[in-house]
Amino acid sequence: MSDFEWMAWTAPTAAFFLGIAGLLIGMTVWQRFSPTRLQRGLLPIATTRGDRLFIGLLASAFLHLAWLGLTPWSPLIALGLSALLLVSVMRFG
């Protein structure tokens, strides 16, 4: 096996992917102990816990893009807002 230097890993991106992997494992374990049910909340479609996680993450990504594109402020604020958004989608979606 030759080297993978071209993948150009950095600490923040590695942490990002580990975070995603951790989320997936966490969701699997959670599912084992308390299975999810289809629920109908504020979103227009009935969703499971996994669906809401995905919708929340996707919405957070777009929030970051909008933040970077429209405001001059630090993306860390967007990160905080996304966390709020993710939690509320998981809870009320």
């Binding site: 096996m1 080297d3 993978f4 993948m7």
Partner: peptide
């Protein structure tokens, strides 16, 4: 972008 490098890595 990375396809070429990925497939090069595996020859």
């Amino acid at each position: 972008l990375p396809f070429f490098q990925l497939y090069s890595t595996f020859g």
